[in-house]
């Protein structure tokens, strides 16, 4: 393999891990609450703009900034779930679609008013700029974002599959009626899930900022990417989302090799059309018997 290709694959892999982390929040909310959160990408923007405002000058400041945006997004997530999504959940219909879509638009215009300058970023908070080996150069913020995303992904997986709280979340996901019959406090579980998803999204945003400048329109793009990751990953298991995220990152990176700029992006989406047509249930489908 040429060093260009190695570089692209590594870059794509690291970017993909970040997409996985963004997708995980959406996946959790969708599978536990059956809510399609069209505002998810804007929760990522809360993380990006939050870190932008805090403007960390060193690694410690950056770590603190990530924690702050996680807490901030968790608070926003709680309010959104409690006061906008929860009231419509047992009413049937599709109120949450309208609510999360509208919420995304509200977020977008709010960010546009607060941050009129597009494509803002921060200085590299890491003490090193890049790692170079054999003609392959990868920036340290990118490596860090990928590695931290992977660690957080593993932590979420541990939470979902190994803890009591995770078992309750899976119970709600498997059968809402079953959860009610065993006495799960369903609204509390929903709030926890949504808060967790929002916090993960914000941390992902904070990790993304040193790699990619932020602008208000990025929210929609990230929402779409998170959707692709969740749909391609399938509803069966969390690791499907992680694999799909990595695939998206790789497809974008390698696609850029064969097609220029925005054409590459459209090729990626065309490719996912194909995947969905061939395997509509996603990578990992749910195991269900009649």
């Amino acid at each position: 393999m040429s060093s260009t290709l190695v570089q692209l694959v590594l870059t794509g892999l690291l970017q993909g891990l970040l997409y996985s982390l963004i997708g995980l929040g959406l996946y959790l909310v969708f599978s536990v609450m059956r809510v399609v959160n069209f505002a998810h990408g804007y929760l990522v923007l809360i993380g990006m703009y939050g870190v932008l405002v805090l403007d960390p000058q060193n690694l410690l400041d950056y770590a603190v900034a990530l924690v702050i945006v996680a807490v901030l997004a968790a608070g926003v997530g709680y309010a959104v779930e409690r006061f906008l999504i929860e009231p419509g959940l047992d009413k049937g219909g599709h109120s949450q679609l309208v609510i999360t879509l509208s919420l995304g638009i509200v977020f977008q215009y709010t960010f546009q008013v607060l941050f009129p300058d597009p494509f803002q970023t921060i200085a590299n908070p890491w003490p090193w700029d890049a790692v170079t080996s054999g003609g392959v150069t990868i920036s340290v913020p990118r490596i860090a974002a990928g590695v931290i995303s992977l660690v957080l992904g593993l932590a979420v997986s541990w939470l979902v599959y190994r803890t009591r709280a995770g078992k309750i979340m899976r119970a709600c996901s498997e059968s809402l009626s079953g959860a009610l019959h065993v006495g799960v406090h369903v609204p509390r579980t929903y709030r926890t899930t949504f808060v967790l998803g929002a916090a993960l999204a914000a941390v992902a945003g904070g990790l993304l900022l040193p790699i990619q400048p932020v602008s208000p329109l990025l929210g929609l793009e990230l929402t779409v990417k998170a959707f692709i990751v969740v749909v391609i990953g399938g509803s069966g298991a969390l690791w499907g989302t992680v694999v799909a995220g990595v695939l998206l990152g790789l497809a974008e990176a390698v696609g850029s090799l064969y097609a220029p700029g925005s054409l590459a992006t459209s090729l990626v989406y065309a490719l996912f059309f194909l995947v969905i047509l061939l395997r509509p249930q996603g990578i990992v489908s749910s195991v269900r018997t009649a």
């Binding site: 078992k167 119970a171 498997e174 059968s175 009626s177 079953g178 269900r288």
Partner: peptide, 8 residues
């Protein structure tokens, strides 16, 4: 309908 958690 039993309402079990089939995947668990």
């Amino acid at each position: 309908e039993r309402e079990l958690f089939p995947g668990l």
